[in-house]
Design a protein around this nucleic acid. Structure first.
Lengths: 189, 189
DNA sequence: AGGTATACGTACCGATCGGTAACATTGTCA
DNA sequence: TGACAATGTTACCGATCGGTACGTATACCT
């Protein structure tokens, strides 16, 4: 095969379709059709559609932390600037025309059932994000670091959702500004 | 019929199933089965499943504003206390074991397609919520009322999502506290 | 060249999807 | 009683769902 391996093509196409239209909205037939492969190829690389969705999210997880760590690395030792950099970027992304929020968050909404493969990946990602935000809040010297960390998480999740609800010009564009105000207020006390 | 009208029973069951498990996850067969009616009855009361979903959300919209206005009415002329009351209640609800967030928000995530009947209702609700939050922020005398109103919306949406992602003990329980900090910071300048 | 393992395609499975046609039954009210 | 509207019943539609049995082609190694 000159083409990349079937499994990789499938994951690439699935990632795109799942993110843009939702996991439940996309059938395996459409995935294999757009990937130019056949269904048995999908089921040789992935044990089920649910596991394919989980694989999509695991890849999403990697890319998410790459973006996060990029913002962190840009401002060594300055957690407040790290947060600002990360949120500024999120704020910009939410203003793009076909922004669809966070694949992790969306998957958790689509699969409320506890223990679903996709949801497991999503929950783990969010738990880790919460942990890191709280740690950064503590590093900033916040009086109540856990509350500030959680507040930042709420703003971030709100930006993900509002971004896809309101489109360009929506409330998500102010996420960095609001986060900064919240940080300022939390450091003062 | 001794029972309430078929259409009402269907809507009641659909509302429960759609909210808890998601709209795409529930088939019309399950709705009519749980409602103790038959499929033709559903399609005599509702032109399609999508319209049934929209009806569910229109009812949700009514109940949402009832809760909102209740918090408003409890503190006449004091928008800051109104917000606090509303958010305190949201924060409590998110800590309940099988909390599933906001039906409006979830529907918008499930149906990204622009113009879908369910999404239309959801978007209208969120636009109005944004309008009112900004108005309340202005009434508080915030320097940048639109930014504060949007910040409150981000916190609220974040609470809806985090509530169903993290369950009890999650970040959503701090939504009222963080909103108050944000308001405080926004009034100072 | 031949063997072998791996990858792929054709064709199909039963179940469920949203939705409907045709007709029987019921309660209400004139 | 008779007409009407609402609900019930049964059976069905084509399309799509996730998933698989089974035969074929290709690449590599000896």
């Amino acid at each position: 095969m000159a083409q990349p391996r079937a499994g990789e093509r499938i994951l690439r196409v699935a990632r795109d379709l799942f993110y843009r239209q939702g996991i439940r909205a996309i059938g395996v037939d459409e995935i294999v059709r757009r990937a130019g492969v056949t269904k048995p190829s999908l089921y040789r690389s992935f044990p089920s559609k649910d596991e394919l969705a989980a694989s999509y999210l695991r890849q999403y997880d990697l890319e998410f932390w790459a973006r996060f760590d990029e913002a962190v690395a840009a401002h060594p030792g300055d957690p407040r600037a790290q947060i600002a950099a990360f949120l500024t970027r999120i704020g910009k992304r939410t203003q793009k025309p076909d922004y669809r929020g966070c694949g992790m968050t969306n998957a958790a909404v689509e699969y409320p059932e506890h223990g679903h493969p996709a949801r497991v990946v999503s929950e783990a990602n969010k738990q880790e994000l919460r942990r890191r935000l709280r740690a950064m809040a503590a590093a900033m010297g916040a009086g109540d670091a856990d509350t500030l960390g959680d507040g930042l998480l709420l703003l971030i999740e709100g930006a993900y959702i509002s971004g896809q609800l309101f489109g360009a010009g929506g409330p998500a564009k102010s996420v960095a500004r609001n986060a900064d105000l919240l940080i300022e207020a939390s450091l003062k006390k």
